[in-house]
Design a protein around this nucleic acid. Sequence first.
DNA 1: GATATTTCTTAACTCAGGTCAAGAAAGCGG
DNA 2: CCGCTTTCTTGACCTGAGTTAAGAAATATC
Lengths: 192, 192
Amino acid sequence: MFDRLKSSLERLLPLTRDEFVYFVTLLTSRKLAKHEFFLRAGEVGREIAFINQGCLRYYYLKDGNEFNGQFFFEGSWIGDYQSFLTGRPSIQYFDALEDSALLVMQYHDLQKLYTELPKFERFGRVLAENVVIGSQRRTASLLFDTPEERYLKLIQERPKVVERIPLHHIASYLGIKPESLSRIRKRLADSR
Amino acid sequence: MFDRLKSSLERLLPLTRDEFVYFVTLLTSRKLAKHEFFLRAGEVGREIAFINQGCLRYYYLKDGNEFNGQFFFEGSWIGDYQSFLTGRPSIQYFDALEDSALLVMQYHDLQKLYTELPKFERFGRVLAENVVIGSQRRTASLLFDTPEERYLKLIQERPKVVERIPLHHIASYLGIKPESLSRIRKRLADSR
DNA sequence: GATATTTCTTAACTCAGGTCAAGAAAGCGG
DNA sequence: CCGCTTTCTTGACCTGAGTTAAGAAATATC
């Protein structure tokens, strides 16, 4: 039940048995069926979740069209960092792309954790850093990589995405239409 | 000398005279002539700077081409947040677009400040939040706004950028070529 | 197991942005 | 104040992504 969480945490900071157990008491388990929401735009997302099993994404809605911001698999933490920290409503939708199992932590429980076990500040800091690094990498790629380059990088760097997620969602993530991704795939297949 | 800094800080947290004076002792003044660098890709940027006067940008270099990430004017803080926090080399170039005057704070001085005057943690937190919010807004806009929409939003939301920064830099920020921005401007001028 | 839905591809056409080339205008540096 | 650089625009042509429409194949649903 908590194996994945344990090894994930231990990559960040060494924990005694008691510390880990305490951490776990702050979590609640939650199942999401495919297509169920973790958070909707307009809501305040004062919780973050460890994905124990499954896959989620967040997306923006503009003129009725979805634009995928990011995909998350088991082993990573998900949540609207902005909303979580500031208490303001989210502008993103978070939903499950597969049946998923989450371990959810509330904002005030995390704050309590920081106070009672300051070594967990490191956990919070690394989480925040990862958000910044991920977001800036994504911006850079959208700014100067072509859609084809973005697709090739995705295959290279995150093969799981290409394996488990429908192509129309990947197209949206790359900033193009499904038809264009089809053409890119054909181009690549023909040229080798 | 410190008026702009003072009013900028006071928007975040109320300070006594002594606290502000202490903050100021941690800063060193630095002038940058137009085109001078604040930080180069490959270097570790263990300092952040308050822009007292002038304008800076950061950009990425790919295949010999510059891609502008963001512009900063007097009153804002600049630095490579990733490099600053993690101590790893930057992948961005920071340079001055006008003759500029900075107030520079070193990483270890900021850490000292957090320890000695914990109320400044708020300062650090808000700085970090702004980085995340800015980066995510930018990603979203690159993902689903057209270049023309991005240009119109820029005029609306950040008129200073359009007034003070050459169009070829703005084009690069929008993710297009100068010629394309010229055409967009013509299109807009013709259609009204 | 039949039907509906989701997923993915292909084709024809349009259009915005890239590329290459050129030149005008403004600003700067000596 | 003269020449050089920077800034900005325009035109012709090319290319890749959007749009619309259709259909095939795989999955889900009852």
